[in-house]
């Protein structure tokens, strides 16, 4: 009986929910902001919620409502939204070997955001294979649900909330860098990884500082990969 309970999909999903809670520190303030920005751009609460429900990709949603409000041609709005989201192409293949085959993936992969990918890539290898599907289901559904609810709350009461607790929106997002730091810290035992990761972090930060946050993730990862292979080449040359 206890063995049956330990293999229960619900229990695995709840484990995913529990471990995805730190992500909410970033999701809640950003989704509240999105709801607020969308209503200020002329969208109704339910239209803003529909965008969060269907597109579900933070930066591109802000761009979408901003461009629509500015009167940009809709084909350009769609093209720019997809261009920002093109980084997601490399997320799925990284998780392919870690997740079991299932007919549910075509809709479950909708929940594969930057943050869920980062958490899944770190946690899935540490979990037994039978637990992984439930874990991903719980983690991704929690993040998606909170994103939609946050949008609705932001659209209806965002202005009141930010006026009443002005620091809340500044403090909670710090959960994201803290979480990602704990995810990559174990790789700092290897010199080549340490150089490549530091190069990536610095590149991403600099690109964000200069207003290139939309392309910072793929560009910085590219810089990091270049560092990774450069260090490898130099090591080989020295040894030969």
């Amino acid at each position: 009986m206890s063995q049956l309970a330990s293999h229960s999909p619900v229990r695995h999903a709840l484990k995913g929910v529990r471990e995805a809670i730190p992500l909410l520190g970033g999701y809640i303030p950003v989704s509240l902001s999105f709801g607020l920005v969308a209503t200020q751009a002329g969208f109704s609460t339910w239209e803003a919620a529909a965008i969060s429900l269907l597109i579900y990709a933070g930066a591109s949603q802000f761009l979408f409502v901003g461009m629509v409000a500015a009167g940009s041609p809709l084909w350009l709005v769609v093209a720019m939204t997809l261009l920002i989201n093109v980084r997601h192409v490399v997320y799925g293949p990284n998780l392919a070997a870690l997740l079991p085959r299932s007919r549910h993936w075509p809709w479950l992969m909708h929940g594969l955001t930057d943050q869920v990918f980062a958490l899944a890539l770190t946690r899935l290898p540490q979990l037994p294979t039978p637990e992984r599907f439930g874990w991903f289901l719980g983690a991704s559904l929690l993040a998606w649900g909170v994103w939609i609810v946050g949008t609705v709350v932001g659209a209806t009461a965002g202005e009141t909330l930010t006026q009443r607790w002005p620091l809340l929106g500044e403090i909670m997002p710090f959960a994201l860098p803290a979480l990602f730091l704990t995810m990559i810290a174990p790789r700092y035992t290897d010199k080549r990884w340490a150089v490549a990761l530091s190069c990536t972090i610095l590149s991403a930060l600099l690109l964000t500082l200069y207003g290139w946050s939309n392309v910072a993730i793929p560009l910085a990862a590219g810089c990091g990969a270049l560092c990774f292979y450069t260090v490898k080449l130099q090591t080989r040359r020295r040894s030969s």
């Binding site: 930057d114 770190t122 730091l181």
Partner: peptide, 11 residues
């Protein structure tokens, strides 16, 4: 892992 580091840099 480099994508995670990039997300860290942005955040």
């Amino acid at each position: 892992p480099l994508m995670i580091a990039a997300v860290l840099g942005v955040s």
